[in-house]
């Protein structure tokens, strides 16, 4: 029983880290572009650690909002929470910790647009297309099991 719980925890960790890595690479890419425009070609380690921790916190919250292997009943409500949290974590994090501070206003605007588009694509991919498909699969499964 303890072994099963550990495997479940480990599996959760693997999935969470995958999402964390995805968000972190996105943030680092955006920072690299922003810094590059300002003629800066190195990054502060402290900023990288802050970004990693924020991405981890967001990925943990995301795994709580969209638990794997369970039917999603509150998809709309949780998606709204997910969007709010994403803005608080990434836009808030950037503003408070100054990840993109030397960038000009138009660069910040571009970054914000890219962020919104990436978030939209991520939301559509993971939380619309896949979740809707999962819902349909489960609906059909229940019908099959009732036969």
């Amino acid at each position: 029983m303890r072994g099963t719980s550990f495997i479940r925890f480990y599996r959760w960790g693997m999935e969470m880290k995958y999402h964390m890595g995805l968000y972190f690479s996105g943030l680092v890419f955006m920072k690299a572009i922003s810094d590059g425009v300002c003629g800066e070609f190195s990054m502060e380690t402290l900023h990288l650690i802050q970004m990693l921790l924020v991405c981890m916190a967001f990925a943990i919250a995301e795994s709580w909002l969209f638990p794997s292997g369970e039917e999603q009943e509150q998809l709309r409500r949780n998606t709204i929470w997910w969007t709010i949290l994403a803005h608080v974590a990434f836009v808030g994090g950037a503003a408070i910790m100054g990840w993109f501070s030397p960038a000009p206003w138009w660069m910040l605007l571009i970054l914000l647009v890219v962020f919104e588009l990436s978030l939209g694509a991520m939301w559509f991919g993971f939380h619309v297309a896949l979740k809707q498909d999962s819902r349909q699969l489960n609906k059909q499964l229940r019908a099959f099991q009732k036969q």
Binding site: S68, G69, E70, F126, L130, N138, L141, Q145
Partner: peptide, 16 residues
């Protein structure tokens, strides 16, 4: 199939 609790669509066309 009668003992499956849930199905989840995964990236890459897989199902969990």
């Amino acid at each position: 199939l009668h003992r499956i609790r849930t199905l989840e669509s995964r990236p890459g066309g897989r199902i969990e």
